[in-house]
Design a protein around this nucleic acid. Structure first.
Lengths: 208, 208
DNA sequence: GTCTATAGCTGGATAGAC
DNA sequence: GTCTATCCAGCTATAGAC
């Protein structure tokens, strides 16, 4: 092994460790965000959970906004990746259903709802984040195409404006009913997901 | 007019003014809560909006928790009162639909979604508020009866556990899709309400 | 009962030693 | 790059004058 290799390996190790720590930070952030939300999540929370000090945290992410933005970007990227690897034979409505199922499972396993939109100030913060916006717009345009196609195919209600369906679809990924069912019913995660999909696509009414 | 009358009138005036100011405070609280949420709403916000000083605010409500609790109690009472004056000839599902419509209109006019539950800490705070809990449980038991009756009548999907329907019903009153449609679509409030009801009861699917 | 002023605390962000 | 120690802004809540 040459000196050159040895050095490059050392750097690589360091980078790897750095990357690992960054992932650990983002994992912690994700969990805490899902738990307490943006306003109540403190940088001390994150630092303590990861087991590093606050200034070290700031070496990785320059602000709370930045940190949360990165965590959400990772989430959106996960959704985009999931879409990409999905069986392309599926119909539009099947794709929408499968992605919603994935999002609900991510949430039930302690992840985040994408669309942290309940707060206007958080929404404003994210809209200032260019990287985040680029990603979310990419995902959005894919979903919009699926909705329009499904309406054309007669699988989704064509009487409804497509944005009503699209916004409602997003809302289902962060539906508080999931939390309540998780906490107050004895239902399994599978049952919760199944029922939520049923309600989203068929509503409360008797399905014919 | 006797002296006695005059005195009693004066006291009555004072009480009336006090009550009016209290209502103004609750109105402001409601608006700000709907706008920024609990965490970001400050007592200064409320005091400034009403046009009084912060210590005066504390003469009316002993803490922020107390203030927010009272605002939410007023909201729940509104819902209960609305239920009570509804045409009792309506079917269970019609009652549920009418109440949801009312809740959505209240929200669109700047009011609050009931179920401020997105945050676990706010939920915990409310559960410590006995008056609030009493009211919410009263409303909840009425709604639960309606859901069960509607399922029995074959108007709501009897395959679904009733708590899935009930929790989802609550969720629809605070569905973020409403905010998005209000902000990004050119839709009238009536159209938004109509579409949200359609999506809640029939889902995204083509209605038969 | 209303105000001005302020106590007391929390949390985001940083200085500076190592 | 990591820590300890700290700054500073902003918030809830209250003391004390009028």
């Amino acid at each position: 092994m040459s000196i050159f290799n040895s050095i490059s390996k050392k750097i690589s190790f360091k980078d790897q460790a750095f990357k690992l720590r960054e992932d650990a930070i983002l994992d912690a952030t994700t969990r805490i965000l899902g738990d307490k939300g943006f306003d109540l999540m403190t940088m001390d929370d994150v630092a303590n959970t990861v087991g590093i000090s606050k200034p070290s945290l700031y070496k990785h992410f320059k602000s709370k906004e930045d940190l949360v933005g990165e965590a959400l970007i990772r989430l959106i990227d996960g959704a985009i990746a999931y879409m990409a690897q999905m069986d392309q034979q599926l119909s539009s409505v099947q794709k929408l259903s499968t992605l919603l199922e994935w999002a609900l499972r991510v949430r039930l396993e302690g992840g985040l709802p994408f669309l942290p939109s309940t707060s206007a100030s958080v929404r404003a913060m994210l809209m200032r984040n260019m990287t985040y916006m680029t990603r979310i717009l990419k995902l959005n345009s894919q979903l919009e195409k699926l909705v329009l196609a499904a309406q054309k195919e007669g699988q989704l209600n064509a009487q409804l404006p497509s944005d009503v369906i699209l916004f409602s679809y997003y809302s289902r990924t962060c539906d508080p009913a999931v939390d309540y069912l998780k906490q107050y019913s004895k239902m399994s995660d599978d049952d919760i997901v199944g029922h939520m999909l049923q309600v989203a696509f068929q509503g409360f009414r008797t399905s014919s």
